[in-house]
Design a protein around this nucleic acid. Sequence first.
DNA 1: TCCAACCATTCCTTTACAGGCATATTCTTT
DNA 2: AAAGAATATGCCTGTAAAGGAATGGTTGGA
Lengths: 119, 119
Amino acid sequence: MGMTITTMSALAEPNRLHIVELLRDGPLTVGEITVQLGLAQPQVSKHLRVLSDCGFVEVHPSANRRIYTLQPQPLIEMDAWLDSFRRMWEERFDRLDDYLKLLQSKEEKQSSTEGAEDK
Amino acid sequence: MGMTITTMSALAEPNRLHIVELLRDGPLTVGEITVQLGLAQPQVSKHLRVLSDCGFVEVHPSANRRIYTLQPQPLIEMDAWLDSFRRMWEERFDRLDDYLKLLQSKEEKQSSTEGAEDK
DNA sequence: TCCAACCATTCCTTTACAGGCATATTCTTT
DNA sequence: AAAGAATATGCCTGTAAAGGAATGGTTGGA
């Protein structure tokens, strides 16, 4: 819900993740990003296009250049998505984990009669 | 840092994202996941392999089956990574945004002397 | 012991995508 | 007006990865 696939796949690309991290410290032009990434300019433009389509960045043209600014929306959505899991590790994930370890040890006790274990 | 690329690319795949969401409600066997996803069993096993390599899930064999359990670690790392951005939208992203709009309007005032505007 | 169920692995094919390169576009400068 | 930055787009190619199908390996049950 809201957590689209494209949001994740945008960040799955190393260079795009890097761009997002760069823009965390403030807006940058394409040229500046290109230098930081050590990539060719066309590739950077393409990555920025993808990030733009996902709502990760916004452009404002300034003279010859284009200034890219990070947009918080997709990150906020990621945060919301993580929320449903946060309970899992905050309200003691251990309880479930302990329960499973209990089950497992019970089974290991069975199979240990022939001395063969998996792995 | 710690926020690896592979963590993102694991969730970039729709079916894997779905698996993670399924496991949020509790451990499942391969067969159960296969039914839910409507995929062939081998593909599910492959996706689970990827998730396992990224530390997203853990397996404990139980008789004939294999029970997959969601592991919080990668999600915790995502959460930590998001932390550095959280300030951005909590402590007013607008200030920076306003500053940029100021810069932009300043430049537009320059170029408006010849009456040409972008957009 | 033999068969069936459950799951992992392998091979093959196809497709999506990132990089390289050339080019188009827009703005600035002279 | 011409030339030169800064950026975007299009085409081509290689590669990684996902799905399909077959197979191998365990475990449980008859």
